[in-house]
Simulated scan of single mutants.
Amino acid sequence: MTIQARAPGKIILMGEHAVLHGCPAIATALGLYCTIKVQPRGDGQIELQLPDLNLHRCYTFQTLLDYVGRVRQSSAQGFAYEVATDADHLIKCAIGELLLRLAPEDWRGFSLRVESSIPANAGFGSSGALAVSLAAALLRFFNLKPPRHPLEPLAMSIERYQHGQPSGIDHNTSLRGSTIERRPMANGSFKLISWPKSAAWLQLRDVELYDTGPARESTGQVIAATRYRLEGPDNPLLESMRHSAERFRSLLQRPVLMPETLKHLLRDYEQALECLGVVPKKIAKVIRAIERVGGAAKICGAGALSGDQAGALLVIGAPALPELAQFRRINAPLAVDGLEVCET
């Protein structure tokens, strides 16, 4: 028996950073995938196969439970160190988190293989897709079913081991697919709205997506270092981001293509991200070149505090611009379907 679960990546179209301060955010599922395969083992061991990282390891149940316990009790500095230096950190935490939901007599060994085409630490939702696909595969393997064992809260718990305090839009976009809005409610909670695929396909049909390379810092580190700039009553930077996100939401509902409006919104939000301090100078220079030829661009995701790379870059109106040749073009469809699970 082999259980396979596959979940797509994502990009945040509008609302990153501001979403953690009560603003709406809109993300769309991206046709790059994390695929998990789980098979039973008879020796009671947990085998991890990570060919993308050239990594092959075996663990006992207790080793993974001890690891999760240590991470839970670590300081912020210790947590950041584990995320940055341990290649299979998130997978070990995910398995440990699931084991905590099982009685010891129900534990059984398995082999787990992870393959992903999603760039890591670059705003494409690699950890969210891993959390969703891994949670789905293991829930199926251990025959844990909703409503007692819902998938989404488990995926959220796994994401916390990577980002600390995630907004939830990453893994929910991978889970649901298409285009997702995280919209704040008056009581301080939020709701998730699934948009039809046509919303992204129309207004974003001419955009290009690039990978500028992984950021030096994790998403959690970038957020922790910059969130104070969005705090306080009537914060002008936050209000600017909120205004752009609301206008972008309205744009997606329009039945006609409006590329100039899209460019204007991308420029405004990109300027806010630069004021926040999450766009490296090298990337900002490329964006200025795009704007000089009448185009627009913004980073998608947390960005970076240092270095020359900031992950995902969304571009419109700058075909064959020489400055973009240094980055990897991501040729993948937007608003794809979400999680898929099968058993063979």
Results as ranks from 00 to 15, higher is better:
140 R>N: 08
140 R>T: 15
140 R>Q: 10
141 F>E: 13
141 F>D: 15
142 F>R: 12
143 N>K: 07
143 N>I: 01
143 N>V: 01
144 L>S: 14
144 L>K: 08
145 K>H: 11
146 P>Q: 11
147 P>A: 03
147 P>R: 00
148 R>W: 04
149 H>S: 02
149 H>D: 04
151 L>A: 10
152 E>Y: 03
152 E>L: 07
152 E>S: 05
153 P>L: 12
153 P>K: 11
154 L>P: 14
155 A>C: 06
155 A>T: 08
156 M>K: 06
157 S>R: 05
157 S>I: 07
157 S>G: 00
157 S>P: 00
158 I>P: 02
158 I>D: 03
159 E>T: 05
159 E>W: 00
160 R>L: 03
160 R>M: 02
161 Y>D: 07
161 Y>A: 08
162 Q>H: 03
163 H>P: 06
163 H>A: 07
164 G>L: 10
164 G>P: 04
164 G>T: 11
167 S>T: 07
169 I>N: 08
169 I>Y: 11
169 I>Q: 14
170 D>T: 00
170 D>L: 04
171 H>K: 01
171 H>W: 13
172 N>Y: 14
173 T>M: 12
174 S>Y: 03
175 L>V: 01
175 L>I: 01
175 L>T: 00
176 R>G: 05
178 S>F: 13
178 S>V: 01
182 R>M: 15
182 R>V: 10
184 P>E: 07
184 P>F: 06
185 M>G: 05
185 M>R: 02
186 A>L: 09
186 A>T: 02
186 A>G: 04
186 A>P: 06
188 G>V: 02
188 G>T: 02
188 G>K: 07
189 S>G: 14
189 S>Q: 08
189 S>R: 10
190 F>K: 11
190 F>D: 13
190 F>L: 11
191 K>L: 06
192 L>V: 07
193 I>L: 12
193 I>F: 14
195 W>G: 05
